[in-house]
Design a protein around this nucleic acid. Structure first.
Lengths: 88, 88, 88, 88
DNA sequence: CCATCTGCAAATTAAC
DNA sequence: GTTAATTTGCAGATGG
C-alpha cells in the first residue's frame, strides 16, 4: 500500500493524531525560528547603538556567506561593465 | 560622548573587536535559523510521505497563527465580494 | 565564433554600445513597470476610499488568477484537516 | 455620509458594478505588468546570448538606480569594515 | 489618530 | 528537485 491519505482516513484517529503531531512540531519550530530572528534584530539594533551601520553590516554578512572567488569575479565584471558605460 | 563610530576609530582595536563580535554573533544565529528552516522542511517532507499535502498543511499553520476573529471577518467579506461578482 | 564577451572586447566600441543598449532598454522597461505598480496601488487606494477592503480585494484577485478546480480541491482538503484538528 | 460599504450595499447594483470595475482594472494592469516583466527577462536572456552576465547586468542596473553619493558612502564604510575584520 | 514609509519576513517563482 | 532570487505582504516606526 502506498501512503496516500484519503478522505475516509480522516475519520481515523490515527490519521488525526498524525496531523496534530505534524502541526504541533511545525508550530514549535516556527516559534524557535522567530525567536532567533528577533535575536538577530537585536544584534543589529545594538550595533547601531554602538555606531555601526546595520545596512552595511548586513552587506558584510552576506558577502562573507558567499564563495569568495565568485564574489571577486562578479566584482571584476561589474567594474568592466561600469567602465564600458563610462561610469568610471 | 555619543556612540558614533568614526573612521579613525577603526584604527582602534576595541572597535575592531566589537565589529568582529557583532558579525560572529549574527553568523551564529543565522546558522541556527537555517538549521531550523531545514527541520521544518523535513517535517513537511515527512508529512508528504504520509499522504498529507504540504501546501495545505502550510495554509493550516498560517491560519492558526492569525487572530481567529480577523480571519472570520475577512472570509465573510471575501464571500460577499465573490457573490457581488457572481462567483457564487 | 561563439558569443562570449571577453575582457578585451570591452575595449571594443561595439561591445560598449551593446551594453549601453541593454541597460537602457532594461531601465526603460523598469520605469514602465514601476508606473503600472503605482497605477495598481492607486486603484486599491481608491477602492478603499469607496469602502472596499484592499486586503480582501487582493485576495479576490489572487483567487481569480488561479485554476478554479485547484482552488476547490485545496479548500476541501483544508476543511478536512481543520475538522481533524477540531477547528470545525 | 462617509464612504463605508456595508453588507446591505452589496444588494445594490451600484456597489456590485463598482467592485467589478475595480477588479477588472486591477487585472488589466497586472497583465500589462506581467508582459513588461517578460520583456525584461527577454532582454536579460538576449544579453546572456551575447556574452554578458545577466546577474552582473542586474547589479549594474540596481546600482545606477541608487543615489550615487549614498552608494559611495556605503562602499567606503564596507571597505572600512572589511579592513577591520582583516578581509583586506 | 491616521497615513505614509521603511525594513523585515514570507511566499511565489525562476534558474540551474 | 532544490537552492536562489524576485516579489509580495506585514509590522513597526515616524511624521502630519
Amino acid at each position: 500500500m502506498t501512503a496516500v491519505t484519503t478522505q475516509q482516513d480522516f475519520q481515523n484517529n490515527n490519521t488525526q493524531s498524525q496531523l496534530k503531531t505534524i502541526v504541533t512540531r511545525i508550530e514549535r519550530l516556527e516559534e524557535e525560528k522567530k525567536a532567533l530572528s528577533e535575536d538577530i534584530s537585536e544584534v543589529y539594533a545594538e550595533s547601531k547603538g554602538n555606531g555601526f551601520d546595520p545596512k552595511v553590516i548586513k552587506q558584510l554578512v552576506r558577502l562573507r556567506a558567499k564563495d569568495p572567488s565568485e564574489v571577486q569575479e562578479e566584482a571584476e565584471l561589474l567594474d568592466l561593465y561600469k567602465m564600458a558605460l563610462g561610469m568610471v
